[in-house]
Design a binder for these strands. Structure first.
Lengths: 186, 186, 186, 186
DNA sequence: GATGAATGAGAGTTCATTCAT
DNA sequence: TATGAATGAACTCTCATTCAT
């Protein structure tokens, strides 16, 4: 179990994603993050070796997070259409609810800093489920990477649209789920 | 007096996207950009009011660019499946060929700095074509935003995958196109 | 007679004192001055060798100016009290009317840049008049520098006060004139 | 952690007035000031929010200073002529001794930057003393602002003269005091 | 003569990081 | 452990000035 104050480590993590959402990566300085976290800049260096190190650490922690959330809500017992519905809806929900975290992961993932942080596109367990659905003849036998692409990417567009026009996004999401179901299910 | 040198403006634009690709937004300082462009840092301020202004200007210029490229290769005369094939393939090609530009647009689009730069998701002309295909009974009558989502987003995943595993991406792209065709065409 | 465009030279002179009044010496850059004068920064260097040179030149031109103005309104024919009244009133008037010029001369006079620009404290002709008044037994035989001090300095305070409290400054000036008259006249 | 070092704050204050005296307001850059103070430019920003803030703070601190000095040497117990003699002589002394401080206050007071820093022209206590002298029939019942003007302004001219011609300034000061006494005392 | 472009030098300021407590 | 002070390096940007037209 970790020494030091896990509350502080947490404050810093939250401050990082919050500041980056509000001000952008380029404006996320250690002092601003420290201030937002309610600690001294020096304290950041008690928990992380350097700023880059901190960002990488937090990225790795958060990048896998969504898959854990998804796993909590999914199982092989569901019928295929329900599975996809749940999957997409939970992902959408996650992006909306953890906007800061999602934004950070997307932004940092595009940085040279993140190269080398190997993030599984869909961790073992979820991959297994998808492939089992394929073996069961529920999902089409597409390249598993394309399955992932269809499950994760179009919904990002829906989120973006929902930020511009608050109103119709729920209907849009419902329709999108239907499209994906038709595309992936046999 | 000297006239403003369009070559210099261009060098700066290219330097911006190049440096941001190589070093990331947060490391793209005016001096690095100027050095890459072969001009003095002060010269940048002859062409742009501020760094932010420069990024915004270049963003606006480039963000619409892809749509022009797509328009050049697409027309209502094509059969629906060919249209989608061309659309997705051209987009993929564009991302690969203008990696720097695409990366810059994606990264900057996620910055608070870009808020307010209103970029049409698909400009009039392309929108018209899609809707005409719908009227002709070729494309399904989905929300036009969902059509865009399916045409633009999954392919991004394919590009990302292609960066990790050089080999099979062509096959993956072909398959993805087929999936999208099935999803969108009647 | 000077070549070049005296209109431009004049614009620059006016721009200098105006910008310095509005923004302060430290913010009076060549480009701002040029913009205020409606000329190009390069044009300034057609008329002056350098910025410092320009400031010095203009200082010398303006610093003596007040004495010319005073001379226009004063002569040895006046009774002593009228002379002092006119003197002080004209000086007050000048400070108010040519606020920019006065401010510039006061500010620049305090700069190391101005050291070496020898400005007579009261040029010959005015000095002569004062000494003649002394010889005539009208003015007390004080050190001529003290006469100057009494004629020029207290009124500056009155101007400053008048900027803070618009109302009573006229009465204050009248009283001040009376005080000076009593102090200097036999 | 380290405590804020009052020695450093002091060094900076002294450096500000020194550099401004030697090089002028417009040449008083933060780096020059920092170098003169023996600290890093960044350290200046530990003690002050900005350069302007620093100048304003120091101005406010120093601008009132002379009145404290004067108060230390003056009291209502003196006969009127002695009071004026002391007052003017102490002021003269102060200007000579704290040349840097006086110069800074005068220069900065003429800057747009100083607008809003409300400095009392003569703080309560000294004002009270002057008015008491008036009530006692010692000082003439002139507008109190004119009293201040006579006590503070002419002596500035004497100081300026003394810088040009080292020799006779003592006699000039003595005479000036006498003039002021005659002007203000009943 | 007049100008806008161009720039090295330097402005004010913030950065990531270390130090002393 | 935790901190505010301290700083060299780097930031964005403006300066005074020169150059090419």
């Amino acid at each position: 179990m970790r020494r030091k104050d896990d509350g502080k480590r947490d404050s810093i993590k939250k401050a990082v994603v919050q500041v980056i959402l509000e001000q952008g990566m380029h404006a996320a300085s250690v002092s601003k993050i420290a201030k937002a976290a309610g600690v001294s800049p020096a304290t950041v260096y008690v928990y992380y070796e350097s700023k880059d190190d901190m960002l990488r650490d937090i990225y790795i922690e958060y990048a896998e997070n969504i898959y854990k959330v998804l796993l909590n809500h999914l199982s092989i017992d569901m019928p295929g259409d329900i599975f996809i519905d749940r999957f997409v809806r939970e992902y959408y929900q996650y992006i909306i609810e953890y906007e800061e975290v999602f934004h950070f992961v997307e932004q940092f993932g595009g940085c040279p800093l993140s190269h080398g942080c190997h993030i599984l596109k869909g961790p073992e367990r979820l991959n297994d489920i998808l492939m089992q659905y394929q073996r069961l003849g529920v999902l089409n036998n597409y390249d598993i990477k394309n399955i992932w692409a269809m499950l994760l990417y179009p919904v990002k567009a829906v989120v973006k649209d929902s930020k511009n026009s608050e109103s119709t996004s729920q209907k849009q999401l419902d329709e999108m789920i239907m499209i994906i179901q038709k595309a992936l299910l046999k």
